[in-house]
């Protein structure tokens, strides 16, 4: 996990802080970090503030328990990097 920019998993630091129940399944959204260009659109447009930028400005799911699957992030992602795990 040294190369955080390549990994598809969330920032390990964010996991202990979130209240998300990982026993029920994976996180609500899957972010393709190889395609993400850190444009900040998903972080800014998310109405529930699910994302936080990591050190490269790419989104990590800091508050996955807030996600309502409203589709705004993956509809507005210009690089097709966000897909939903549940919708």
């Amino acid at each position: 996990m040294t190369d955080a920019g390549i990994s598809n998993k969330a920032d390990p630091l964010s996991k202990p802080q979130s209240k998300y129940d990982y026993s029920k399944g994976p996180e609500p959204l899957e972010i393709n970090m190889k395609w993400c260009k850190a444009c900040n659109i998903c972080i800014a447009l998310c109405p529930k503030q699910v994302f936080e930028p990591d050190r490269d400005g790419k989104p990590v799911q800091a508050r996955p328990e807030n996600c309502t699957q409203c589709t705004i992030c993956w509809v507005h992602c210009p690089d097709l990097a966000i897909t939903s795990n549940y919708k």
Binding site: K34, W35, C36, K37, A38, C39, N40, I41, W74, V75, H76, C77, P78, D79, L80, A81
Partner: peptide
């Protein structure tokens, strides 16, 4: 990833 700049609207139109 596409050649478009980060945050370019072309990608949103493509989706």
């Amino acid at each position: 990833p596409s050649v478009w700049c980060a945050g370019c609207g072309n990608g949103i139109v493509m989706t």
